[in-house]
Amino acid sequence: MKLLHIISSLEIGGAQRLLADLLPIQIKHGLDVDLLVNAQVDNEFNEKIKRAGINIISLDSHNIYSLSNIIRLRKIISSYDIVHVHLFPSLYWAAIASAGLKVKMVYTEHSTSNRRREKTYFRPIEKLIYKRYDRIISISRQTESALQQWLQSSDKRFVVIENGVDIGRFSAICRPVIPKSLIMVSRFAASKDQETLIRSMKYLDKDIVLHLVGDGDNLEHCRSIAKNEGVSDRVMFLGARSDVAELITEAYIGIQSSNWEGFGLTAVEIMAAGKPVVVSDVDGLKQVVEGAGEIFHKGDARELALKISRLLEDKSYYEATAANCKRRSACYDIELMAGKYENLYYELT
């Protein structure tokens, strides 16, 4: 079976991290796997995929919205049995490029929301695009429900396969923990809410530090919030990093403050490292954490600070929460996810 994954780029993000972990496993399981991107980037995801012996095909196009990508895509995908697509606009271009070809098309929906769904005129367009896919995978029940509601459609093509992480990688890391340190690993984008976390810092003791890992369009705005709130000396903007697992292992508490999420991959990574996690109550994220970690109302900086303070001040509660989070992470081992993906591919062929 020849399998091609398509994603616009390997820039830092949850879907990109997932592919960097998943593709080496698929190779190990005997699948013939390639990856197609618009343009290559020099980062940890790119290097990890290359080290696994996976061919990365680049369109060498820095404009992900260029219609010329469709013509080149069509020539490439015609030689594969399965094409597995991730994220917009690859969702559109691959669907159009595959018209009339016999290749089986799979798409993974990674989020419960996006800006296209704010504009109803996109609905008929997206109905046509999604019809081209033989299977539509959602990374959570909430993601599937939101997509089906948007498309006004529900049939056997829709399946749920929850995300997974490399649990063993976090268990193998041994690093000293930085006392009273918080960490959030996310792109600085509309779907994330670093702003609320930054604002919560003014309600916390002055010796508590926050590490924000990632980059993106909203980064400078968040820097200005830290300055305006008078906490810039305790908020460290670390940028995109290749040692995310190590940084998580060093942290005392992990935070995932989001405006919307499809799943919450970073929250699982934090739990896999044996850390308590505090997340916003958005669908797709809260279901992963509830009953193990802490949940606060989205946008409520005071409540977030209270949740963090309890973990900092009550050692027995901290240890119990950390243990619950560690146990929960085992439900999301990437090997389980990889097996479900492979079963789906073989069903199609």
Rank of each mutant, 00 (worst) to 15 (best):
D60R: 10
L23E: 03
K104D: 13
N69L: 07
A97C: 06
S98E: 06
D34C: 01
R115L: 15
E109M: 11
L67A: 15
I71S: 12
I71H: 10
I70E: 11
D81C: 10
H86M: 02
F88P: 01
A52E: 07
I96V: 15
K119R: 14
I64W: 14
A39M: 02
A94T: 15
D32Y: 01
G53M: 04
V106N: 13
E109G: 10
I49F: 10
L23I: 15
D34N: 08
G30K: 06
A99L: 13
L87Y: 05
D42L: 04
L23A: 06
N55V: 00
E47M: 06
I76V: 15
K50Q: 10
F45C: 09
L59A: 09
S90L: 03
S61W: 01
V33M: 08
D32K: 07
D81F: 08
L101V: 08
V83Y: 13
V103E: 07
N38A: 02
E44Y: 05
V83A: 12
Y92Q: 08
F45P: 02
H29W: 02
R115E: 14
L59Y: 09
N69W: 05
E109C: 14
L36T: 02
I57G: 00
Y80K: 09
V83D: 12
A52K: 05
S90W: 03
E118S: 14
G30F: 08
R72L: 06
G53P: 02
N69K: 10
R115Y: 10
R117K: 12
D34T: 01
D42K: 11
P89K: 11
N43R: 11
A95R: 10
N63T: 01
F45T: 06
Y92T: 12
A99K: 12
P24R: 01
L22N: 02
S61N: 15
L23V: 14
R72D: 07
S90T: 09
V106T: 15
Q26D: 00
S79D: 12
L22P: 01
D81A: 12
L73D: 00
I56Q: 04
I49P: 01
G100Y: 14
E44W: 04
H62L: 14
D60P: 00
S113E: 10
N43S: 12
R115T: 11
N114E: 09
E47C: 02
D34V: 03
K48N: 02
I96W: 06
A52R: 02
G30P: 03
S61Y: 00
L101F: 14
S78I: 09
D81M: 06
A52V: 11
E109N: 14
E44R: 07
N43E: 08
S90G: 06
T120W: 05
S61K: 07
L59G: 07
K48M: 03
I76T: 13
S90P: 00
P24L: 04
F88R: 05
N69E: 03
R72H: 08
S113C: 02
D60T: 08
K75I: 01
D34Y: 00
R51N: 14
N43K: 09
V83W: 12
S78F: 03
A99Y: 13
M105G: 08
G53H: 04
I54G: 03
N69M: 07
W93Y: 14
R51G: 03
Y107E: 13
I27F: 04
N38R: 04
D34K: 04
K50Y: 03
D42P: 01
S79T: 11
K48W: 00
V103C: 10
I57W: 00
N38C: 11
V33Q: 06
D81T: 15
E109D: 12
